[in-house]
């Protein structure tokens, strides 16, 4: 049994064109996405802004309601769970956000921020046990226990992200959703936080859903990768295989667009034309066809299904 199993998940938002009009159109932010995450593993989720990766993560956390499909955590369907039952399950999945400058309450000390989830879930019996636990958590993310009385503004960006990680770990979750956790950090600090995430995974055997637009970082951290485009999965499979030999033209373009430090880099860069289309009026047929360098006649009428392309890999393209 997988830790997290998402089946045919759909999240559609109605679009209203005036104050009194009824919604006739909808944004299909997430449109039929399925995947699994095993305990202690990392799934990387890649895509450009507006492809639905953040909405997908919010739906899994039950911060937005799913329009269709279901989400099973530890074999238990949480898609429509509410109230107390949901609150108890929330212990099992936590989140780390992109911007550590806005995800921490500026009026709470670092210690209080980490303490709060432990108190809410009643995970410490006594006050001293609580304090010990906060100190241990701070230590495990590379901060010292004396820093517990400081406020977020007294920390640097990398340290704040460590506080956010400690807060997520405080309730011993099985899954942490990391939404672009290193994008806002300096290059030299990114590596520290990535290493920390890997160490913590080994120690606590926590699974990550790691969302990023940086394919190099995702490849480094992930066991498997899911590539999204306009609310749909266009390619999935083991990280090393996808990065070595991407099958879908979008994944190929995405990989070739990553600026490389390697000086012997002679890759042919595929520069995609045009912008990401509007998700309200997605293109007919394959959603990628207006930007695809390999487009054929049938691409603008037939929607390519996500199908197996050998081994554990799948891609949604007519031409594979």
């Amino acid at each position: 049994m997988s830790l997290l199993e998402v089946t045919d998940l759909k999240v559609h938002f109605p679009v209203k064109h005036g104050l009194f009009s009824t919604a006739r159109e909808s944004v299909k932010a997430v449109d039929g996405v399925s995947f699994k995450i095993e305990a202690g593993k990392t799934l990387g989720l890649v895509g450009e802004s507006g492809c639905g990766k953040t909405t997908l993560s919010r739906a899994i956390l039950r911060l937005v309601d799913a329009t269709g499909g279901n989400i099973r955590l530890d074999g238990e369907d949480i898609t429509t769970m509410t109230g107390r039952a949901l609150r108890e399950r929330r212990r099992k999945f936590q989140m780390i956000f992109q911007d550590p400058y806005s995800s921490l309450n500026p009026r709470m000390t670092a210690g209080d921020i980490i303490r709060e989830p432990i108190e809410i879930h009643g995970l410490a019996k006594t006050k001293s046990a609580l304090n010990d636990r906060v100190a241990a958590l701070m230590k495990s993310v590379g901060l010292s226990a004396e820093q517990a009385s400081r406020y977020p503004h007294e920390f640097s960006g990398g340290q704040r992200q460590r506080i956010a990680i400690a807060r997520a770990l405080a309730v011993e979750p099985g899954l942490i959703i990391c939404d672009e956790p290193v994008s806002a950090l300096d290059v030299s600090i990114q590596a520290q936080v990535i290493n920390l995430l890997q160490d913590l995974q080994r120690e606590h055997s926590v699974a990550y859903l790691f969302i990023s637009h940086d394919l190099a970082v995702v490849e480094h951290l992930s066991d498997d990768i899911l590539v999204m485009y306009l609310g749909k999965v266009v390619e999935s499979g083991p990280a090393a295989e996808i990065c070595r030999e991407p099958k879908h033209p979008y994944t190929q373009a995405l990989l070739s667009a990553v600026p490389e430090v390697n000086p012997a880099d002679n890759r042919k860069r595929i520069v995609l034309q045009g912008d990401l289309p509007s998700p309200i009026h997605p293109p007919s047929g394959c959603p990628f066809h207006p930007r695809c360098p390999l487009v054929e006649a049938r691409c603008n009428s037939e929607v390519p299904p996500l199908r197996s392309v050998g081994g554990a890999r799948a891609a949604a393209c007519h031409l594979i």
Binding site: V187, S188, Q190, A191, I194, L215, A216, V217, E219, H220, A240, C243, R244, L255, V258, E260, V261, N262
Partner: peptide, 8 residues
């Protein structure tokens, strides 16, 4: 400090 694609 930066991860490189293809060289894990």
């Amino acid at each position: 400090a930066v991860p490189k694609t293809g060289a894990r």
